[in-house]
């Protein structure tokens, strides 16, 4: 039996071994838990889609221009993006039409593999869902002749047009407190606010991106430009279940490739007209 010079030395030796053993057990348990969650957790999401050769995507089919149902036919910007993603993944696309309130439930319960339905990131749902690559920013942008006005500080002494009661109006009212002489002009619709800018009644409009693109598509003669950066950003994402990392990775790669080769911009331009920034 090992001898110790003092009783304290024996006590510290035992204590050391006890602490070291506890640390080892703790590290082992944590390692197993972490590994099971991050490395050894089975993720058959991509294999499942491959085996079916079908990607099932949930969409709200009452939201123009993203997805609209006419008879048996569903068309729209989101449909085209989903078709292109499915083509790049080498599978067929199946659209599951549903109301906007049912989208997340359908994904959570596995009725669909993904959601592509102009869905902005919701921080509250990040524990349950993955938001992959914003394919479009549907937020609020300044629109002005030749893109003269890009941000709030450019608007000192100017007239800004906004849809009455909208988020743009809300933002413009906040700017009233920060700029010495800003005039906010209200209009019943974003299109009227944009028309006011085109006709010189206002210097800039603060409207949502979709309204701006759709209006500019119909009014090619108007020399208006959308600002480079949004005033209020609202990116639309592809949404997947949080455990479907493999599928999310494939979808993300497809989206990135679409962005890189210009096919994403082409699809958006097909539905919203050319990008005038």
């Amino acid at each position: 039996m090992r001898r110790y010079p003092t009783r304290n030395a024996a006590l510290f030796h035992t204590l050391r071994r006890l602490v070291a053993s506890l640390c080892c057990v703790f590290l082992f348990v944590q390692g197993v838990r972490y590994g099971r969650y991050h490395f050894f957790r089975p993720d058959p999401s991509w294999e499942r889609v491959q085996a079916r050769a079908v990607l099932v995507v949930g969409m709200d089919t009452s939201y123009y221009p993203f997805a609209v149902m006419q008879g048996e036919r569903i068309s729209g910007l989101d449909v085209d993006i989903a078709l292109e993603i499915a083509r790049r993944l080498g599978v067929r696309l199946q659209v599951a039409p549903m109301g906007v309130d049912g989208l997340y439930d359908a994904l959570h319960t596995g009725v669909v593999d993904a959601l592509i339905s102009a869905l902005p990131l919701d921080p509250f749902r990040l524990d349950t869902f993955l938001y992959v690559g914003a394919y479009l920013d549907g937020g609020y942008f300044l629109v002005s002749p030749k893109g003269l006005y890009q941000r709030m500080s450019d608007l000192e002494g100017k007239r800004i047009a906004a849809e009455y009661g909208s988020l743009g109006d809300e933002q413009a009212r906040l700017w009233l407190r920060r700029l010495r002489s800003l005039r906010v002009q209200h209009y019943a619709e974003p299109s009227a606010a944009l028309a006011a800018v085109a006709e010189g009644e206002a210097d800039a409009a603060l409207v949502d991106y979709l309204s701006a693109r759709l209006w500019l598509r119909e009014h090619r003669e108007a020399d208006l430009r959308i600002a480079e950066q949004p005033i209020h950003s609202e990116g639309y994402h592809v949404v997947l279940r949080i455990q479907d990392l493999a599928l999310a990775s494939k979808v993300s790669e497809a989206l990135e490739a679409m962005r890189a080769d210009g096919s994403l911009a082409a699809i958006i331009a097909r539905w919203l007209g050319e990008d005038r920034r």
Binding site: D60, S62, Y164, G165, Y187, E189
Partner: peptide
């Protein structure tokens, strides 16, 4: 109601009016 995704909603300007 002025929710942009609800079919029984109106535009924000209409809501105020």
């Amino acid at each position: 109601n002025d929710h942009p995704r609800w079919t029984h909603a109106v535009r924000p300007s209409q809501r105020i009016e």
